[in-house]
């Protein structure tokens, strides 16, 4: 099949971007979306043009590198899938695709479809961990964790930190990302020890990073490739309120 592409090009964070019209020819339905872009890029290079820059690495939906909006949807039209796992069989001959980077103040554009998501790292840095030095751990089975709790912790811990939640949110809020980590650690007895400082520090950092406020629209969870639940946000909010009261 043949497709028409409109791809965002931008040299750097401070330059003006624009849409470039391109064609993807003889696309096989078994190609992944990124393989389709690879083919387009090979043609561009052969013609003496510059290829489209985009982040990617594992191409298995787990590293969280790939990040682009396809026809208005972060990671494209398919539910619970990153754009690297999206396959061209979801499209048909003649389709037009508009491809853009994540758009959020907290994620400045590095080049074309690549953004700077280091704000997420700084949120984790503020408290997304359990303070235990190497060598200082008790025997692993000494603290039993009910299976339902462990499974719930796992579910929230599957967040890949891609930033689709921010890209989907009209306020560009990072609440789902932040809440997923809070909720993961909160579900485990090991994580409870630092519960209060964690929630205050992580949410505090999120506010400093120019992310917008969460107004509970749910757009984040709807596009999340790992289907992180909105319940994490409710949980983080309630923990935050309690911690803030205790602190004051």
């Amino acid at each position: 099949m043949n497709l028409k592409l409109k791809v965002w090009k931008q040299e750097g964070p401070d330059t003006k971007g624009y849409f470039k019209n391109l064609e993807a020819k003889e696309v096989s339905p078994d190609m992944s979306f990124l393989e389709m872009l690879d083919v387009v890029n090979q043609d561009l290079i052969k013609k003496g043009d510059e290829p489209i820059a985009f982040d990617h690495d594992c191409r298995e939906g787990i590293c969280g590198s790939c990040s682009m909006v396809v026809n208005g949807d972060p990671h494209g039209p398919e539910k619970a899938v990153t754009v690297c796992q999206l396959h061209m069989r979801k499209f048909k001959d003649g389709d037009s695709l508009v491809i853009e980077p994540w758009r959020a103040k907290a994620f400045p554009i590095v080049k074309d479809l690549i953004t700077d998501r280091s704000a997420f790292d700084r949120i984790i840095q503020a408290g997304g961990y359990i303070s235990v030095n190497t060598g200082n751990a008790p025997e692993a089975n000494s603290i039993p964790v009910p299976k339902v709790k462990a499974d719930a912790a796992f579910q929230d811990a599957t967040c890949i930190g891609c930033g689709a939640c921010v890209a989907a949110c009209k306020n560009a809020s990072a609440m789902l990302f932040t809440a997923a980590k809070i909720s993961h650690l909160e579900a485990l007895p090991q994580g409870k020890v630092e519960s209060q400082t964690r929630v205050l520090n992580m949410i505090g950092q999120m506010d400093k990073e120019k992310f917008g406020a969460c107004t509970n629209t749910g757009a984040c969870s709807a596009v999340c490739p790992k289907e992180i639940s909105l319940k994490t946000i409710a949980k983080a909010n309630s923990l935050f309120r309690k911690a803030a009261i205790q602190k004051s």
Binding site: A137, A140, A150
Partner: peptide, 19 residues
Amino acid sequence: IDQCVAQGVPFARDYGGTL
């Protein structure tokens, strides 16, 4: 394994709560 569990790595568990 001890270290990872202490960090909050959510390994699979059996119904009794052990790994």
